[in-house]
């Protein structure tokens, strides 16, 4: 059962930030509630006030411009999965969103809420890491951009200040002959392992000019694994393919996998290696099949 709380419904980001500053730890931002309400029902956390930010206009917009896709923090998983500009420019992101939790969670849950709750077993953070996304955080008098790799501090913990609100996410569109893939594995409701790969090939499609690798769900936060990336970057395709096994080992070790209900550390590390190979192959396949056209990012 939910304990009683008061509801505040600010009409602007400034107003919401002022409420957060005024009530401190006794208040929490509420958007879709798909994570927050579960924890509150369990009695794991309690707030005297929830601040519903869904009355603030324009925080659910999805816009394309200046080589960047801007997503409002209040975009639901469903609206992201159905967004025309995202489908055209970032299909791998759409596929990830189509498979978040289930249809009811996607209907209500927001991308901003997903990131801010920082539940380790989540999909979006891992993919945003290889996209080089930037998050916009606002408070009453200030606004800053946070690179996604600085955002997650620990399980259920982000770098947001007490009176800061995540308002948007910016994803740069990638250059020609590049693509993206995300694969996850799990047998529970939430994913147990998630791996994302971003690949860029040279003009002839024969060597890897850029590679980014991120692993999520296995440890406290999703992580970019640069050591694994450097094993793939600048290599001819054959060499890069041969280095995948080693890159997988490196990624598994660096992922900070822990043993929990989703599996033992060893098991998760093994799955990371398997998924890294498959994600790389998928990303590579997409690079070949049209990743080059019009500088689009084909996922």
């Amino acid at each position: 059962m939910l304990k009683r709380f008061r509801l505040e419904e600010p009409g602007s980001v400034e107003e919401a930030a002022e409420l957060l500053a005024r009530y401190g730890e006794s208040a929490k931002v509420y958007a879709g509630g798909t994570e927050l309400l579960l924890a509150m029902k369990e009695g794991l956390i309690r707030y005297e006030r929830l601040i519903n930010i869904k009355q603030i206009p324009d925080l659910d917009q999805i816009k394309l411009g200046d080589g960047v896709l801007r997503i409002g923090a209040l975009s639901t998983h469903r609206s992201l999965a159905g967004s025309a500009p995202l489908k055209e420019r970032l299909p791998a992101f759409v596929r990830m969103e189509e498979n978040v939790a289930n249809i009811r969670v996607r209907e209500v849950g927001t991308i901003g809420g997903n990131l801010c709750f920082a539940e380790p077993h989540a999909d979006p953070g891992t993919l945003l890491l290889v996209l080089g996304a930037k998050l916009t955080a606002e408070k009453a008098s200030a606004r800053r951009e946070i690179p996604i790799e600085k955002f997650f501090v620990g399980a259920y913990e982000t770098c947001l200040e007490e009176d800061e609100i995540l308002t948007g996410i910016e994803m740069p569109l990638a250059p020609a002959r590049s693509s993206l893939a995300y694969l996850k594995f799990g047998y529970l409701e939430r994913p147990s392992v998630g791996v994302a790969v971003f690949l860029a090939l040279d003009g002839e499609g024969k060597s890897v000019t850029d590679a980014r690798v991120a692993v999520g769900c296995v440890g406290p936060t999703p992580k970019r694994i640069e050591e694994a990336e450097s094993l793939l970057k600048g290599k001819g395709l054959q060499d890069a393919s041969q280095a995948l096994g080693r890159a997988g080992e490196v990624a598994a070790r660096a992922s900070d996998a822990i043993s929990d209900l989703h599996g033992s550390q060893d098991y998760k590390e093994h799955i990371v290696q398997v998924l890294l190979k498959r994600t790389f192959q998928q990303a590579y396949g997409r690079c070949q099949s049209g990743g080059e056209s019009q500088g689009e990012l084909h996922g």
Partner: peptide
């Protein structure tokens, strides 16, 4: 916990978990 769907109702025609709404 929004996993099973037994509490599903439609809100403006779309399924939601009424246990967590």
């Amino acid at each position: 916990v929004q996993v099973c769907g037994a509490c599903t109702v439609l809100l403006d025609g779309r399924p939601v978990s009424s246990c967590t709404l």
